[in-house]
Simulated scan of single mutants.
Amino acid sequence: MRITFAGGRIAAEALGSGQPLLLFHSLLADRTSFDRITAPLAERFQVIVPDLPGFGASEVVAGGLEAVADRMAEAVCDLQGSHRPMVLGNGFGGFVALQMVIRHPGLVRRLILADCGACFSEPGRQAFRTMAAVSAAKGLDALSETAMRRLFAPDFQAANPALMRERLAAFLRTDPAVFRAACEALGGLDLRPDLAKVDVPVLVLVGEQDEATPPAMSQELAAGLPDAQLTVLPGCAHVPQLQSPQEFLSAVFPFLVGEPGTRASPRIHAVA
């Protein structure tokens, strides 16, 4: 079912019923990157998969990551009822979700941050500056190989050519101006001083082969949050819900069904 939020400025797909669960997609992907996990999740939750601002049918918003986070907070507020929604963000969607929770305390019940962090290293910042410059000069086509490498390890790409064609097409549908604005925002981001403001349990996930947001970023993120647990997914890269959907669901489902107020035990473990 196609629905809209935030005064019609955010478009989304919704399925299932129950506790609302929003899925925020990556910069290098789109909402279809969750297609392999939405049906299983919808057996228990009302799963809502929005197009982030500037993607798909959602309106662009000016003002950097803070403005994007505020727009998504408007969408989440539209779901407020007897239960606060839960949010799962992957990559860029994770940074948006984290910024949203920092800026809007009490908005969500639980938070899953998959393959993101609080701050990039200088080489990571430079990578975003380079991608922004290349896209401006040559277009997104010139970043095709880079984008796919940041999503999946080379051996996985070689073994899954059909999926690679699908993911490349999704990346090339991205508005170049939105892509550059997001790169600039991520290149200057540092949320580490604000992590103590996060007032909900958080599950931090990361693929052990993630080159875009390496595991060290997730480790730093989990260590800086008041109530977090960290899970490393072996063999996975930046979009584990596409690469290993069953393993991803096995990691997130117990956290999602936890009782309200249950404190996440700080720990690190791998899902085989």
Rank of each mutant, 00 (worst) to 15 (best):
L88K: 03
P85A: 08
G56I: 11
E59A: 11
G56Y: 10
P105E: 04
F120E: 13
I48Y: 04
R110V: 15
A39F: 05
P85I: 05
M100Y: 06
V108M: 02
C119F: 14
F34N: 01
L113D: 07
R36H: 12
P50C: 02
A69F: 00
H83R: 15
G106Y: 08
R71C: 03
A118N: 12
A73C: 02
R109G: 14
I112W: 02
V68P: 07
A118W: 06
L111N: 12
A62N: 12
F95Y: 14
P50M: 05
E122I: 13
S58K: 01
V101W: 04
H83S: 13
Q80P: 05
R44E: 10
A39C: 05
L113S: 07
F45G: 04
V60F: 07
R103V: 07
F55V: 12
G81N: 08
E74C: 08
A42H: 02
V49D: 09
R71H: 06
I112L: 11
D78G: 12
A57E: 15
P40S: 01
V96P: 02
L107S: 01
V96I: 15
D51V: 07
A118Q: 13
G81D: 05
L98T: 07
P85Q: 10
G93P: 10
L107K: 07
R110D: 12
F95M: 14
A73H: 02
H104N: 10
P50W: 02
F55C: 13
G117Q: 11
M86R: 09
D70H: 02
A67G: 06
P40R: 03
C116I: 14
S33E: 06
R71Y: 00
R36A: 12
L98C: 11
E66N: 11
G93F: 09
D35M: 04
L113N: 06
A75V: 15
F95V: 11
G63E: 05
F92G: 14
D70E: 14
P105T: 07
C119E: 13
L52N: 00
A97W: 00
M100A: 08
F55P: 05
G54N: 06
L88Q: 12
S33I: 03
R103N: 08
V96C: 12
D78R: 14
F34V: 05
R44C: 03
V61F: 00
F95K: 06
G94H: 12
E43D: 10
